[in-house]
């Protein structure tokens, strides 16, 4: 069976990989969008947080023999705690300054975290195996579906849409949106905005941590695993526009799929297709596909 001269299993396989990568793009760009919404800064350390998520899982397993499932719960908490400390001790001091300083400060965080992990573990990748219950694959007739990949896609979808529901449909979400819209007045009304900001940064970091631990069994656990990925995610965010939580999620999955499709059609371009799309979108729609402000 073929479509456009490409066998269906190959096409379906690449689309699955695209969706799988998109699951990570979505989680990471969602975290960036959540943080940006509240703090008005781009978190350059997001790739490093993702890397630390993977390393935390590796260390929990290597030193404490924690299972994947236990780690899946603990790792986001570790990242949230780290981010809260960074926000309280340093990021908070930049309030009121040009948001570019936030970008530069978090870039400094990324260099320290990545350089530090390289100093301790070297550049080589560390092994991390997926849980036994998720190994293997199912034959869907037209393709093989590795269970772990399906698991990652499902978890990412649940976390992404859960986050969307939390922000758009709950009381705590309305408080966050209110504090975003008018921080100083919200404080006068009795909302503890500084704590909300810290919590938001921690939450965004936790999302990166979830992405990191889920990446650990598939990609190499190495100090610089997040540094190139985060630039692709930046492009995803520019394409989607920062204004919208849903935009970040949809753009993440969609661009993963586009990347997978490109691999089938013209594999040389798969590394750059996201950047090319970004350039085209910027040219015709500077605010991004879901963005409100130019």
């Amino acid at each position: 069976m073929e479509i456009f001269g490409i066998s269906v299993p190959a096409l379906a396989g690449q689309l699955l990989i695209g969706l799988f990568n998109g699951a990570f793009y979505a989680l990471l760009s969602l975290g960036l969008a959540v943080i940006f919404g509240m703090l008005r800064i781009i978190n350059f350390a997001h790739g490093a947080f993702y890397m630390l998520g993977a390393f935390s899982a590796y260390m929990l397993s290597a030193y404490l023999e924690a299972s994947f499932w236990v780690s899946l719960l603990i790792v986001p908490l570790i990242l949230a705690a780290l981010a809260a400390v960074l926000e309280r001790s340093m990021l908070q001091r930049l309030a009121g300054l040009d948001p570019l300083y936030g970008l530069l400060l978090t870039f400094g965080f990324a260099l320290i975290l990545e350089g530090g992990m390289q100093y301790v573990f070297g550049v080589a990748g560390q092994p991390y195996s997926p849980p036994a219950s998720l190994s293997g694959a199912s034959n869907l007739g037209f393709m093989f579906m590795p269970h772990y990949r399906a698991f990652v896609i499902v978890v990412s979808l649940i976390v992404c849409f859960g986050t969307w529901l939390l922000i758009e449909r709950t009381k705590i979400g309305s408080i966050l949106r209110a504090a975003t819209e008018n921080p100083s007045l919200s404080e006068v009304f009795g909302l503890n905005v500084p704590v909300l900001i810290t919590a938001t940064y921690a939450f965004g970091a936790a999302l990166a941590g979830i992405a990191g631990i889920m990446a650990a069994p598939v990609f190499q656990v190495s100090p610089y695993m997040g540094s190139n990925l985060i630039i692709v995610v930046f492009a995803v965010v520019v394409i989607g526009g920062m204004g919208s939580i849903m935009g970040a999620i949809i753009s993440g999955f969609a661009l993963g799929l586009v990347e997978g499709l490109t691999k089938v059609i013209y594999s040389e371009a798969s590394n750059v297709v996201v950047f090319v799309i970004m350039a085209i979108v910027l040219y015709f729609r500077p605010a991004g596909l879901f963005g409100k402000d130019a």
Binding site: M90, R93, Y101, L105, A110, L111, I112, G115, G116
Partner: peptide, 18 residues
Amino acid sequence: PVNVVIGVVFVISVLLFR
């Protein structure tokens, strides 16, 4: 590790030395 030192200089520059 050079990168760590560079990162620290970055953080110090942004926080204290703009």
